[in-house]
Design a protein around this nucleic acid. Sequence first.
RNA 1: CGGGAAGUGGCUCAGCCUGGUAGAGCACCUGCUUCGGGAGCAGGGGGUCGCAGGUUCAAAUCCUGUCUUCCCGACCA
Length: 569
Amino acid sequence: MRQSILFAPTLKEAPHDAVVPSHVLLVRGGFIRQIAAGIYAMLPLGWRVIRKVEAIIRREMDELGAQEFHLPALHPREVWDATDRWEVMGDNMFRLKDRGGRDMCLGMTHEEVFTHLANNELRSYRDLPQVWYQIQTKFRDEPRPKSGVLRVREFIMKDAYSFDIDREGLDAAYEHQRKAYCGIFERCGLKYYIVEAHSGAMGGSESAEFMVRTDAGEDMVAACRSCDYAANTETARSRIEPASDPEEAGAPERFPTPGLVTIEDLAGAHPDKASADRQIKTLVYVLDGKMHLVLLRGDHELAESKLQGATGAKDLRPGHAEEIREALGADPGSLGAVGVDHLPVLADTELEGRREMVTGANEDGFHLEHVSVKRDIPRTRFADLRTVTENEQCVHCGGSLEVFRALEVGHIFKLGTRYSDAVGATVLDAAGKEEPIIMGSYGIGVERVMAAAIELHHDGDGIIWPDSMAPYQIHVLALQTNDESVRGKAEELYEGLVAEGYEVLLDDRDERAGVKFKDADLIGIPVRVAVGKRRLQEGSVEIRRRGEDAVRVVDASLQSVCAEVVARP
RNA sequence: CGGGAAGUGGCUCAGCCUGGUAGAGCACCUGCUUCGGGAGCAGGGGGUCGCAGGUUCAAAUCCUGUCUUCCCGACCA
């Protein structure tokens, strides 16, 4: 490709609304342009990168026998009603009506359509196993699109589904996908973590997320420094030192705490009896419309996903100030569960058996001391509800955990029969008995892979593409286009390299050398071949790998350039 | 949805407080010089100041509403 005719509008300055590096660089490098919030146009360079990523995914999928489909993005309501998700997906789903007034939607994912097909077409255990996939645009009306291409409303996803007759088949399919994902992300040059995950709206038993460690991500991962345990903090567990409490010293007693409404305030005012780990934090949550009290140790944070998991609630939200006052007679900051018998109480397991605690008295300006959980809050159901934090102990090996921000680039699920049961997708087994098809679901966010590579590989000058997803492999710069010999040599090398099978971008623009260097660094093609007057007089050109300082001066012949390009130290 | 910020040539921003001729840098066009790390000089084109209403002799500027975008919290690839 000749850059003189390439549409790659590079920018010196970052648009003011871009904050994460991948967003800034994709826009500055002329890879993408925003069309609306969370909706981007892929320009030629960006699209080439996307196609590279897709090709890597295809290769791995095809290798394990997965078959590529292309399903509609526009779905009739019926297939979503069949699994009940027309309701469940709520405002996140883009909905529309056709001319006949029929409800339609834009696909957020394709469990429904694939399951619909499986239901209609798969009859016998002899038809199984099957692994189907596609690379398709998904539409989600995200409440908050952000970070460029990382969280958007329209994006490309590779989604694969496995169909098996039994658990063992599912386990095998899941394992195949897991391995394929490792291959995909390795080829993409991404350092990733495989992490235990919360299954969320997908349902299903086991799931793992593929995470790339970057501050641009939105998830938190807890990973053991000593063993390979890693989990999303939505589900991560840890061990902490058990608390040693004094013996019970009498019934709960009210004491005045005017103006003390946070854990810190109270701990500061009464360090003797109300240090944060001696307080019971009382949260009010509304789960599927029903108010609950949620109790945690004062210095612990709730993991909402765990609360959801523990209760099976579909819809969950913190209580509003007014309804809390109505239910408990006090405002947040003075709430407690002692004596509350009209609301269900859930408590984190770290509170089990605790004695001599302090908690709100359900009267503004007062707290209770001498609270023993078992005696004074007897109707409590315990569950793991707290969010793990840095340096706590690994549940497997006792090593210390580190907690960091990460970006989810892939997610694999064992769905089981959640969808096949919903639509009645069964096959006959060898005994002629109807059995539900057992499914797995496996997704990769294609744009996220692209962005993650940039988050991991860039410097102050621009992107440093991994070889596998670079839009071109070699960037030939003709530094002086007005010089016949330079121009001729650049053309000659360009043609030669193309003939050798390389993907080459030739900067033949009528621009100054400095501009070409800057753009080359920004765009980030792995190998740069600079053809300039100075070197050419000595019969040589310069080759530099993006991201490395070393410039190699080689003979200006196709052979030596090729040799240098292939030699990758 | 809750909280915060911003909308002024293609991009980054100033001007607004204290109403009166719409500005700068970059980008673009022409010419000359320059020519290996985002050139210099000279000339030039391009803006309903997000939109609507209001106040005023007069609105980018003040008031109201509205739309859009970004950032921070609840969802997910």
